[in-house]
């Protein structure tokens, strides 16, 4: 599948604007935009710049290590990765039915993860842009500035 702004027909004549690193999402990323003389946008890309190879290097490890290893995919959403790997291991060891307690425990962990991640994204990452405006002074547009102005 491809989209209209994915690849410009003639990128060589265009001006490049890069947002690097992207600081308003959780994780590593870079956005590049290509524009023409009239500031018309011809290409927009989000680049996932980090490659670590977890898919490969977890192979051959003792299986009970994997849920703990994959927590290190992301320190912001470790619980999601932990539970996804747990689910995969359930299938491997033939645990087709969780006990009611285990199911509730996993749900509770997920809710906690969602709450924490949303709090981080909204308060620490987004609120400075929303409350101060996107063009405001970069030295104040952060959680410290928010704490001073909107305690």
């Amino acid at each position: 599948m491809s989209f209209a702004l994915e690849t410009a027909a003639h990128p060589e004549n265009l001006r490049r604007v890069a947002i690097d690193p992207v600081s308003r999402v959780e994780g590593h990323g870079k956005v590049t935009i290509l524009l023409d003389d009239k500031n018309k946008v011809h290409q927009v890309r989000l680049h996932i710049v980090e490659f670590r190879g977890f898919e490969k290097f977890i192979q051959g490890r003792p299986y009970w290590e994997v849920p703990v290893m994959v927590q290190r995919l992301c320190g912001i959403c470790p619980v999601s990765h932990h539970l996804a790997a747990s689910k995969a291991l359930d299938a491997i060891v033939g645990a087709h039915h969780l006990t009611p307690t285990a199911e509730k425990m996993r749900r509770l962990m997920h809710y906690g993860q969602i709450l924490q991640s949303h709090a981080l994204h909204f308060f620490h990452l987004c609120s400075p842009d929303l409350l101060f405006g996107f063009d405001s002074d970069v030295s104040k547009r952060n959680i410290v500035g928010i704490a001073e102005k909107h305690p």
Binding site: E26, E50, L73, G75, P78, V144
Partner: peptide
């Protein structure tokens, strides 16, 4: 080449920030 887990731990200083 980290996972931001250490930054999350840094934020665990909570109101001491």
């Amino acid at each position: 080449a980290g996972c931001f887990g250490c930054h999350m731990s840094f934020l665990d200083i909570d109101e001491r920030l």
